[in-house]
Each structure stands twice: as structure tokens, then as C-alpha cells.
Design a protein around this nucleic acid. Structure first.
Lengths: 151, 151
DNA sequence: TCCATGTAAATGCAAGTGCATCTATATGAA
DNA sequence: TTCATATAGATGCACTTGCATTTACATGGA
């Protein structure tokens, strides 16, 4: 898969990657919204925090896990903080940094959202695949695209 | 793959779908921008028009092919029209509708962009896959997600 | 014909995003 | 220590997107 021109299969995969994500994301977002929940990005960010030691991460770390730009992380945290789902704490080891910690309200939010989110994932992704092997294959192949040999 | 709860493989595939697209799209957009080209969405829209009979499509059709929301299509056409890459024509068969046609400048634009776009696709997608079979598999699986059994 | 209802596309406004820049702290060389 | 440079995160501004609504035309029934 080297060389400077992509094969037809690669171009097709690229085009479908864009559209499949667009379709799935729009579907899931719409389902969540209809059920009265906040945007998906809030869930994803809170989940990363919850999974981390002490329920906290530095914005920089959140950035690399969510693959969002720095200024977008900064403002996402603003919104989550304004609603009381996270709190910013100073980061002792580096005065420039900070720690973003999930609050009890944040934990409650993702817990409450999960059933609806889970159902939406199943509807817009799971139900379109034929079997577990396909899901596994898809996850594996997408994993290759994420692997960071970037730059 | 039925039922209401997604398997772990499905959840993983979902999470990676979001991130893989985000990473690949950001990478390709950055490459194009650095080379001085307009956003990717312009290319995609113009390509759909170029491939169509008479180089024209109704906005409604463009919407379903690009999987963008109606108002976004409307404004994308505004921008393309302002730069002279497309033109809006009345649609005789339905007075509410219109036809959006690619211009000579539009054709020249996508022709000029393709080498840079192609190289970016190869760098951010092709180079990360191991062989043609993987590209083909990925395209096939993503195709399942796009297939419209929606609603 | 007239009107209620439906559909294609545009638009005002709010919210989110990209971009460049700014502030504050950290690090390393002189 | 001092200063140049680098890094973490915030922010002003322009542009894009989402959402609701509006406008214009189409369609079908009374």
C-alpha cells in the first residue's frame, strides 16, 4: 500500500469512510437529541474522564484521545464545566496545565445516557453488519487508520 | 447482529469509526489547505455534479449523495456559485426545484485539485492499510453502514 | 376553482468550529 | 540568574453548521 497514488479500493474506502461516519453520527446524534440528551461529544469526553485514574485528565490528554483540536477541547470543557459535569483543578506538576475531573453529576449523566446511546449504536451500526466477525473486522481495519504513524 | 444492545465489537467499531474519520479527514483537509486548495466539501460536490448527466443535479439529489443536511447544501451551493464553480438553473419539471450545474471553472478546479487530493488520500488512508485486500474489505464493510435501510 | 396540505429550497439566529494570537508557565543555554 | 524559546491552555473574530421558520410552488380533494 505504498506509492503516491491510492488504488481504486483505497479511494472507495475513503469516500465511504466519510459518508458512513456522517450517516452513523447523524443518526446517533438525532436519536440522542430526540431523547433529550446532550450532544454525543459530551458523553465521549466524560467517558474518557471516567475511565481515567481519579476520573481526571489533562486537556492535552483528552485532546489526543478524542482527536479534537486544542481550542475545541478548551471550549468543550467550558460547556461541561458550566453545566457542572466536570471541574477544572490546578495541576501541581506543571503550572501551565490543569486537570479536568468528572463530577458526580457527570457520572450520573453518562450513566443515564448509556441505554439510549447503546441502542442508537446498535441501530445505526450493529444492525447493519451481518455478524460478529464483520464487526470485529471493521474495528480492526479502522484501528489501522487511527494508529499514529502520523508525521 | 440483531437485538437492542450492541456487542463489544460493535461499540469498538463505532468508536473507531468516529475517530478514524476525524483523523483522516483532518489530515486530508490540512494537506489540501496547505497546498492552497478550497475545502474538501467543494471537491466532493463538484465531483458529484461532474459525474452526473449534463454535469447537473438537483440540490435534493446532491443532499442524498453527500449525506449533508438540506440547509448545508443550500449554503454550499451559495459558496460555489459565488466563486463561479457552479450555476443555478431553473428546473422546468418542478418550479420549486432547480438544477445546479458545474461550470468550466468548476471542472478545472477538481482537475487541478485531484493530484493533491489523491496524494492526501494515499497518505492518510492507503498508507495505513497493509494490502489491497484490506482496502477492499474496509470499503465493503463501510458500504454496509451506508446502505439505506434507514427508517 | 379554491383551499389544505406537502415538498424544494432559502434564511435569521444561535451555537460550534477553525484560525491566529495571546497569556502564563516551563525549560535550557549563556 | 537572565533571556530566548517552547509548551499548555484561553480567546477574539470570522466562518460554518444546526435549528426553526419562511417562501414558493405542487398536488389532491371539496
Amino acid at each position: 500500500m505504498s506509492g503516491d497514488a491510492p488504488s481504486q479500493n483505497v479511494v472507495t474506502a475513503w469516500a465511504r469512510l466519510i459518508r458512513a461516519q456522517r450517516a452513523a453520527l447523524a443518526g446517533v446524534e438525532a436519536d440522542l437529541k430526540q431523547a433529550g440528551w446532550p450532544p454525543l461529544g459530551w458523553y465521549d469526553a466524560l467517558l474518557e474522564l471516567k475511565r481515567s485514574a481519579n476520573g481526571a485528565l489533562r486537556p492535552l490528554e483528552l485532546e489526543s484521545r478524542l482527536l479534537l483540536a486544542q481550542h475545541n477541547i478548551s471550549r468543550l470543557i467550558d460547556r461541561l464545566e458550566a453545566k457542572g459535569y466536570v471541574e477544572r483543578r490546578p495541576y501541581a506538576a506543571d503550572g501551565r496545565g490543569q486537570l479536568v475531573a468528572i463530577t458526580a453529576a457527570g457520572r450520573a449523566l453518562i450513566k443515564g445516557m448509556w441505554p439510549a446511546y447503546r441502542a442508537a449504536i446498535q441501530r445505526h451500526v450493529g444492525a447493519k453488519l451481518r455478524n460478529e466477525a464483520e464487526a470485529d473486522q471493521l474495528a480492526t481495519l479502522l484501528g489501522r487508520l487511527i494508529a499514529t504513524e502520523e508525521d
